[in-house]
Design a protein around this nucleic acid. Structure first.
Ligand code: MN
Ligand code: MN
Ligand code: ZN
Ligand code: ZN
Lengths: 131, 131
DNA sequence: TTCAAATTTGTAATGATTACAAATTTATAA
DNA sequence: TTATAAATTTGTAATCATTACAAATTTGAA
């Protein structure tokens, strides 16, 4: 599907910056930080501001276009794949890969007194290149 | 068990600050931030420095006395309960409660190419007081 | 074209964490 | 005990990702 159309479906006006930022995320699928997005795009968009990337990620987040991944304590990361899945981060190289389960994400023991809206599953260790 | 003995078992010299900090964590079981620990203890330890709390948490972390909980993107939280369990954070009041599963923490689909050393399971939503 | 709204930008402020060296306390040797 | 070294604690400054904010630019309707 077209990125501009996808943004419109989420009630976001598809400005050039927004299209390029979402395009970067969908193409790279690398769970990037703001710095990674900015550093890549500024080469072809010299007037791009880092604040715009921050603003856009906040907009995408509130509109459900991306999900926040806080597997890294230093920098926020974002994922344009909003399907429920977990993440693994290599302690050595920092690479982040998706984790899938047999069936939906496992739920904790019955907590009828909690209204769970979101689940994050993070694993850490060494990836195949680093172990 | 005695807190000083517990620290010695983890090769940590049980100084007064360290005992009081771990005592706070074990008594409150509230997954505190550095600020919460400092703010509570400084009332009875007027010379306590926030840097000491930071240093001590780093020492506890490296010695396996506490686990890091990064369910909150703003501040790091710590847990003296090092058994494998998940956490829930209320989006409204910020309270953090433990989550347990039937059996061990669920594992993702076979990733023979990953060496998983640590798993974090975070859920967010509304607690019984706030929903 | 004109004008208001939306978007983007640059700079300053924020705030948790870290770096670091001085001060204090604790342990060891003489 | 006293002298000395090591460990711990402390206070202050630096770091750095993120946020606040107002000015500049762009967009789109009238
Ligand atoms: Mn993902
Ligand atoms: Mn816990
Ligand atoms: Zn790796
Ligand atoms: Zn609550």
């Amino acid at each position: 599907m077209d990125i501009a159309t996808y943004l419109k479906e989420h009630n976001i006006k598809p400005s050039y910056s927004r299209i390029r930022i979402l395009d970067y995320m969908m193409t790279h699928k690398n769970h990037p930080t703001v710095d990674m997005i900015y550093g890549n795009l500024v080469k072809e968009m010299p007037t791009l501001s880092k604040t715009t990337v921050y603003n856009t990620m906040e907009l995408f987040l509130n509109s459900g276009v991306v999900k926040l991944i806080s597997i890294d304590e230093k920098e926020k990361r974002y994922d344009a794949d909003i399907s429920t899945h977990g993440h693994f981060r290599c302690d050595n190289c920092g690479r982040i890969v998706d984790l899938y389960f047999d069936g939906p994400l496992p739920m904790p023991k019955a907590h009828e007194d909690l209204e769970i809206r979101e689940i994050q599953y993070y694993a850490k260790g060494l990836c195949k290149h680093c172990k």
